[in-house]
């Protein structure tokens, strides 16, 4: 892996995208299979309830602690959400690798542009949970 060669960087980016999607799809499939084994013949109504007046709006784990606890106990919902998070991480890592790509071309302007895009992505994922207006 040579971070200063644009061609090998493109290969890495292409692989990150492909395997990121495949990995997350595989995790979602596992979670779905477990969910089916647990709750296939339960009524779906309670799973679809949307509570507009509370955040989070659903009754499935979305916080870091909730997800870790869910994963530790092998909860199907938490496994599916882990797959979703892996999918979310895919474009983020693409942007991250693009920074190396521009750095290899000594293109300082675009290193900053890409860094700003990365910051915006990280802001949306890591900071908005702590900013009440984003909860709705």
């Amino acid at each position: 892996m040579n971070l200063s060669d644009p061609d090998s960087m493109n290969t890495i980016i292409s692989k990150v995208l492909r395997y990121g999607v495949l990995l997350s799809a595989a995790v979602i499939v596992v979670g779905t299979a477990l969910l089916a084994a647990h709750d296939a013949f339960s009524q779906s109504g309670s799973f679809l309830t949307y509570n507009p007046n509370q955040v989070p709006h659903g009754s499935f784990p979305v916080t870091f602690n909730g997800l870790v606890a869910g994963l530790a106990s092998g909860a199907p919902m938490a496994i599916i959400e882990l797959g979703v998070l892996l999918l979310l991480a895919t474009p983020v890592s693409r942007v991250l690798f693009s920074i190396f790509l521009f750095a290899a071309e000594h293109n300082r302007t675009y290193v900053y542009v890409t860094l700003t895009v990365l910051m915006l992505l990280l802001f949306s994922m890591l900071a908005t949970p702590y900013i009440p207006i984003f909860g709705g």
Binding site: S44, F47, L48, V62, E81, L88, S124, M125, T128
Partner: peptide, 16 residues
Amino acid sequence: AASAGIYFVRGDVNPI
């Protein structure tokens, strides 16, 4: 990805 993160923590991404 920029908006999905917000939807996720808000609890709008229902696993089912």
